[in-house]
Design a protein around this nucleic acid. Structure first.
Lengths: 201, 201
DNA sequence: GTCGATGCATGACAGTTGTCATGTACCGCA
DNA sequence: TGCGGTACATGACAACTGTCATGCATCGAC
């Protein structure tokens, strides 16, 4: 019997996936969590075999949770599930000790197979996401450029960004220009959008 | 027996929700669709009692589908489900003839209750979304402002927007300024983000 | 018919942003 | 030690964006 923890902030999805998994005779959903914090607490308490984590959650996201769990509860294997897009997170997910990485576009049969595979010590990464991640490659941005672009993401003016990273206006503009050039955008906002799509910020 | 069509572009979610509903003794999931186009075709073919539609789908979204169905298949009642946020769509959903409107944060029990209620001729709108929609109110933007802001959304420069809506640069800037002022943003991008959060563009 | 309110349109001006030339510090390498 | 490459930092200049004053057309109220 494989003991599973399901974490997703959307109650309906969480219930539905938990119900789906519970239908399998060799699965038992032992707990549910609606946030990263809850997921960590529940995992430490319930010690499941597999933690099925949504990537986007309030508080710590799925990857943060996986990192904590692989450090504090190594016998619990993590699988991260994500909505469409976001191949850029794959690399950091693997670095965080995630054993399975799937988009929500896979079939329920595939999810069950992956849970079994991971529970028995294997790994599984969705081939399509893997291809996209390889195609997209690593972020071309330097750490500083990443910081600055991340702050520019929701429309903050340069001065505010400069203050937050303790830089002069000119320097911030320079980093933004570099990011814009590297990403091929027409301005910072397009660049931020592109970087976000690739999971680089 | 209530015959249900489930439409969601994410296979896993679709499967999971369908499975969840199928557990209910008085429900029968008669079909699934992965896009708005498929949903319309499947509904016309299968003539379900209830169409459960995801808001965000490739091609026609859940509201578009509901509009088509309420025109061409009025005996099929539509329920729209959405990820968190987006109260702004509620009004257009109701205008499109949607009978139920729920965030994906509700429990599975609630979903089942709403399906029964809608199938028997009732309506249900999530109280929290309704409150937010009332609080947020209608879009303060004029049609032109909405057009322009929508185009500014993903970072297009003014000239491109001007071309697309056949306006002078100055006029476009003026509309953007009006939108920025009305929405309380610091620049067009913040304004676009705010409008998007409210579902106004 | 006049009035005010509203939506739409334009151009001048000032402030912000993007581009560029330039400079410093650090690192690996011959 | 000297060299090239990279990340980081700055300021001048040009282009773009946001603000403002202004004008025109439509529509309902009086």
């Amino acid at each position: 019997m494989i003991r599973i923890l399901v974490a997703d902030d959307e109650h309906l999805i969480r219930d539905a996936i938990a119900g789906l998994l519970d239908l399998q005779e060799d699965f038992e959903v032992v707990g549910q969590a609606a946030s990263g914090t809850e997921a960590i607490a529940a995992a430490l308490r319930l010690r499941p075999d597999v933690a099925l984590l949504d990537l986007q959650m309030p508080g710590p996201d799925g990857i943060d949770v996986a990192r904590r769990l692989s450090a504090e509860l190594p016998e619990c294997r993590s699988i991260v599930v994500t909505s469409h897009g976001r191949p850029g997170y794959l690399k950091s997910a693997l670095a965080a000790g995630v054993r399975g990485f799937l988009p929500k576009t896979v079939s329920s049969r595939m999810l069950a197979d992956v849970v079994r595979k991971v529970a028995s010590g294997g790994r599984h990464v969705d081939p399509e996401l893997a291809a996209e991640a390889i195609g997209a490659g690593d972020s071309p941005l330097t750490p500083r450029e990443t910081d600055v672009l991340a702050l520019a993401r929701d429309g903050a003016p340069v001065d505010e960004i400069a203050q937050r990273v303790s830089l002069s206006r000119g320097t911030v503009r320079n980093y933004l220009a570099a990011a814009i050039a590297k990403l091929g955008g027409a301005n910072r906002h397009e660049a931020a959008r592109i970087a976000a799509e690739h999971g680089w910020i």
